[in-house]
């Protein structure tokens, strides 16, 4: 029996008359790479905010790393990591300062921060750049660093919101190497992406259409079911039927 780290039951978020997320139910297992796909405006961001404890659901239930999204949002925040394309690190701090800052926020001891930052810098090959401001790094390096910082405190789940947007193809693959490594260590990866080849790298993929989860399975099964030879085809098949086109 696989250990469940995210469990949602009919999770719903309504803004006035608009149902952004409509009775979403799914489970994510420990160490799994879970792809969360959907067209713009399908409700991905809303759902992700609820799961991170940033937005209170209108109805339904969800537990994240064993904590309730209504009552235990503080515990949730301690046990997850989050990284998005837009904001992740302070551009006007250098690499070490960023690591120390975020380590401090998650309550790591000085000793831990020192050990972890050495390991991380070594792993990313950033020895020469530690004193460089993050703003001066190429985007791909920034994103790899941001991911490493997001899992610095060994969270049970890390949420990645389009982490590789605009990153070059080589660095993009290096980024996925990091994701695999984290997942091997037992960290659950919850990721959204616009690159359909990246959907293939996920263990399971869910497709959101008009606020609902229309499909959830392994990439292989999805391709079979929708008679498509790539995830691109699956996505197109599902998203084409969307009625809603709002951001």
């Amino acid at each position: 029996m696989k250990e469940i780290v995210i469990k949602t039951e009919k999770l719903t978020k309504q803004f006035g008359n608009f149902i952004a997320a409509n009775e979403i139910s799914f489970e994510v297992y420990k160490g799994e790479i879970f792809g969360f796909l959907g067209a713009n405006g399908a409700g991905k961001t809303t759902a992700m905010r609820m799961l991170c404890g940033l937005s209170r659901p209108t109805s339904g239930n969800a537990t994240i790393a064993g904590f309730d999204v209504y009552r235990q949002t503080e515990e949730i925040k301690k046990n997850i990591g989050y990284m998005s394309q837009k904001f992740s690190l302070y551009e006007d701090l250098n690499i070490l300062e960023n690591i120390r800052f975020f380590g401090g926020i998650y309550g790591l001891s000085r000793q831990e921060i020192r050990e972890k930052s050495e390991k991380l810098i070594d792993q990313l090959g950033l020895e020469m750049e530690v004193k460089k401001l993050v703003g001066e790094l190429p985007l791909g390096w920034k994103q790899k660093l941001a991911f490493s910082v997001a899992i610095l405190h060994e969270p049970s789940i890390v949420f990645l919101d389009e982490p590789t947007g605009g990153v070059d193809p080589v660095t993009r693959r290096q980024f996925w190497d990091l994701i695999y490594e984290a997942s091997d260590r037992g960290i659950t990866i919850f990721v959204t992406t616009h690159y359909m080849d990246e959907a293939e790298y996920c263990n399971r993929v869910s497709m959101m259409v008009d606020g609902k989860i229309e499909a959830l399975d392994t990439p292989g099964n999805l391709k079979m079911k929708y008679a498509a030879n790539s995830m691109d085809g699956v996505f197109y098949e599902l998203a084409r039927g969307a009625k809603r086109k709002a951001d």
Binding site: G38, A39, N40, E162, G165, G166, H194, M196, D232, F235, Y236, A239, R240, A242
Partner: peptide
């Protein structure tokens, strides 16, 4: 097409 989903891109 940056940040636009696959359907809109097509």
């Amino acid at each position: 097409t940056t940040g636009v989903d696959a359907v809109s891109r097509k």
